[in-house]
Amino acid sequence: MSRLFKASVSENKELIKNHYLLTLNPLKKIKKPEPGQFFMLSVDKGLDPLLKRPLSIHRLTGGNLQFLYRVVGSGTNILSEKKTGDILELIGPLGKGFPFKKTQKNIILVAGGLGIAPIFALAETLAKIPPPAPPVLLFQGARTEDEVLCIDKLKSIGIDPIISTDNGTLGEKGNIVSVLKKYLTRHSLPVNRYILYACGPEPMLKSLSSLAIKHKLKGYIALEQHMACGLGTCLGCVVNTIDGYKRVCKEGPVFPIEKIVW
């Protein structure tokens, strides 16, 4: 089954300044995405921008796909102007998602900024696991109170995140990794009973990775990278790992946290 398909825009809602929730209705039956997987979205039929944009799946609602994105450049700017009924071309789901099915461990989720997009997808999927579902703890960081997204949706699935903001307007002041670090130290958690899943900006993932290695905490992170094909052929999106360069679109975007060379 070809993963190339068209979808119509059901809604493209600005949540806060520059942050949008895009709901798409696929015009054909598609493969169900796993949390952490992504789609390539064409934002325009013209030649600039030329390439499709990779966006990780945020939520499945009915048969619809939801993406949470921030306007960062020309592609996302054009995407933000899409109206209900507009047709986009997509490829997906692509890449490897978060491996979680057999985990019996306590789960620590860490999301920085828009990293909540795939982390929420994972949280919602975990919440649907029949009891006894693994306990989930979510650490969510953002620049400001406004940018702490998905709070209500998280509450509806029984998750009350531990929050930090850069300016201290909500939760602790500072970055979310130092909040997690304090938590780990204070609770002296038996690390082999915990597993980590994270997504966020590179500096956050980098410091999270050294924290995880220091505490011998195992886990997975979802990475972001510019992509051309999204299919594994162009070799444009590689990341350096202890096993050499790996394609974010194919071997990733989710990697074991200890594998990445920062």
């Binding site: 510019h226 051309a228 444009g236 360069y245």
Partner: peptide
């Protein structure tokens, strides 16, 4: 061949730059 370090691609108007390095 291992190829070049990332970032390896950049989009430009109606085009793209790549420096994969023949990986």
């Amino acid at each position: 061949k291992e190829g070049n370090p990332p970032p390896r691609i950049a989009e430009t108007p109606a085009g793209m730059l790549n420096a994969i390095g023949l990986q």
